Amino acid sequence: MRVLVAEDDTTARLIIEAAVTSLGHECIVATNGEEAWRLFETADVEVVISDRMMPGMDGIELCRLVRTASKDTYTYFIFLTIFDERPDVISGMEAGADDYLIKPLDPGELKLRLHVASRVTALHRQLFRQAAELEQLNHRLFEQSRTDSLTGLGSRLKLNEDLDAIYTQAERYGRNYCAIMCDVDHFKAYNDSEGHPAGDKVLQVVARTMLNLCRASDQIYRYGGEEFLILLPEQDIKAGLVAARRFRQGVEEMAIPHDGNPGSGIVTISAGVAFFSGPENKSIEAWLKEADAALYRAKQAGRNRVEAHEPPSAMPEPPSQPSLAGIGTS
């Protein structure tokens, strides 16, 4: 162990240092309380042996500082003093000391105290290590619960938390948002023909494609099954339509074969866009229902297209351009 000795008397300090090192421990020494505190702050000390009466900062004040220090290990504190009356012992313990030794130093008593200190500090190190591991585990569980295990996108739990924050920001700061609800076209048919493992792979590819097309501030979630939701902060309906068409085109250009999609023969998505300008106009639930209703209209209109809840007259749905594979229409 590393032992810090605080003793203003030179002879007593040399005796303690020799006794500590003879027991196989590392010893660093300080001639007063202020020096001991500076050494304690910079060194990894397991045990402090301090004289109680010292000029300037005495042992009681040093002990209290040691106990308030924010370190991830426990420091065993021993008073070395000529005071052995019960009130003196109690006041030392109340300051945070673990034990005390009476001057002149008895090497046998020191050996006993350091043996106890070794057990106590080892136990505290184990407890601190276990607490750190538990904190890391809790952090991983926190992140896992907010991440969809298949796609790596935000989960419904993460979505619910973020929607609460969006509501607050819209109410307090007047922030605007667009929601894009996306759905893989004829996904059930793909699962039926290719199998669920292949369907899971398609969802992963679609999720990764859309994630790569998001801005840094956009938030994307797996809404459920083959549905995805993208939330765009500070975007109006026109910008939302532009983003949704970018996502639609990006998935189409992957040209993943899909015999169950009669419109194009490849995997495509449909999307619905809705605008949210604050809780005074509509609730979060109503906003998502508008995006879902727009998605439904996109599917009813032929799939592989984008519809808005309130489409701006200046931005009609443009005709779909041929994909890189030369197939697919809106």
Rank of each mutant, 00 (worst) to 15 (best):
residue 144 Q to C: 03
residue 188 K to E: 01
residue 146 R to F: 00
residue 215 R to C: 05
residue 132 A to I: 02
residue 209 T to G: 03
residue 125 R to S: 12
residue 224 G to A: 14
residue 156 R to D: 11
residue 162 D to S: 11
residue 154 G to I: 08
residue 186 H to Q: 12
residue 119 R to G: 06
residue 132 A to W: 03
residue 200 D to M: 11
residue 136 Q to K: 10
residue 153 L to Q: 13
residue 159 L to Q: 11
residue 177 Y to V: 12
residue 218 D to W: 14
residue 208 R to W: 10
residue 137 L to N: 10
residue 220 I to V: 12
residue 115 H to N: 07
residue 171 E to D: 04
residue 153 L to D: 14
residue 195 G to D: 01
residue 187 F to I: 00
residue 148 D to H: 15
residue 135 E to Y: 01
residue 200 D to C: 05
residue 175 R to M: 09
residue 181 M to G: 03
residue 212 N to Q: 14
residue 114 L to V: 08
residue 132 A to V: 02
residue 197 P to L: 03
residue 225 G to W: 01
residue 148 D to R: 13
residue 131 A to Q: 07
residue 177 Y to N: 12
residue 125 R to H: 06
residue 136 Q to I: 12
residue 152 G to I: 15
residue 164 D to R: 10
residue 178 C to E: 15
residue 168 T to P: 00
residue 174 G to C: 04
residue 204 Q to G: 14
residue 161 E to V: 07
residue 221 Y to E: 11
residue 190 Y to E: 15
residue 134 L to M: 10
residue 185 D to A: 11
residue 208 R to Q: 08
residue 118 S to A: 12
residue 170 A to F: 13
residue 169 Q to K: 09
residue 154 G to C: 12
residue 214 C to M: 08
residue 214 C to R: 09
residue 117 A to P: 07
residue 125 R to W: 09
residue 219 Q to Y: 07
residue 177 Y to A: 13
residue 135 E to T: 05
residue 221 Y to P: 05
residue 197 P to T: 02
residue 192 D to N: 08
residue 139 H to P: 06
residue 131 A to K: 09
residue 168 T to Q: 14
residue 171 E to P: 00
residue 218 D to Q: 13
residue 225 G to I: 00
residue 176 N to F: 14
residue 172 R to T: 01
residue 226 E to A: 14
residue 120 V to S: 01
residue 213 L to I: 15
residue 151 T to D: 14
residue 215 R to S: 11
residue 172 R to S: 01
residue 131 A to H: 05
residue 214 C to N: 15
residue 197 P to N: 03
residue 170 A to D: 13
residue 154 G to A: 10
residue 203 L to V: 13
residue 179 A to E: 06
residue 180 I to F: 09
residue 188 K to P: 00
residue 135 E to A: 09
residue 131 A to Y: 00
residue 168 T to K: 05
residue 208 R to H: 15
residue 187 F to Y: 05
residue 173 Y to V: 06
residue 140 R to E: 15
residue 164 D to H: 08
residue 139 H to E: 12
residue 121 T to R: 04
residue 129 R to D: 14
residue 146 R to E: 02
residue 198 A to T: 05
residue 146 R to D: 00
residue 187 F to W: 01
residue 163 L to Y: 11
residue 121 T to W: 03
residue 159 L to R: 13
residue 166 I to N: 08
residue 217 S to T: 06
residue 163 L to E: 07
residue 126 Q to V: 07
residue 195 G to H: 01
residue 219 Q to I: 09
residue 222 R to G: 14
residue 124 H to M: 10
residue 184 V to L: 09
residue 222 R to N: 10
residue 161 E to F: 04
residue 200 D to P: 09
residue 192 D to T: 04
residue 202 V to K: 06
residue 208 R to V: 09
residue 137 L to E: 12
residue 216 A to M: 05
residue 221 Y to D: 15
residue 198 A to Q: 12
residue 153 L to R: 12
residue 120 V to P: 00
residue 155 S to Q: 13
residue 172 R to H: 03
residue 209 T to L: 08
residue 116 V to M: 07
residue 130 Q to M: 15
residue 145 S to K: 00
residue 189 A to D: 13
residue 202 V to D: 11
residue 167 Y to L: 15
residue 140 R to N: 13
residue 126 Q to H: 14
residue 217 S to F: 01
residue 191 N to P: 02
residue 160 N to P: 06
residue 155 S to W: 06
residue 138 N to F: 02
residue 219 Q to S: 13
residue 158 K to P: 00
residue 171 E to L: 04
residue 137 L to R: 07
residue 179 A to K: 05
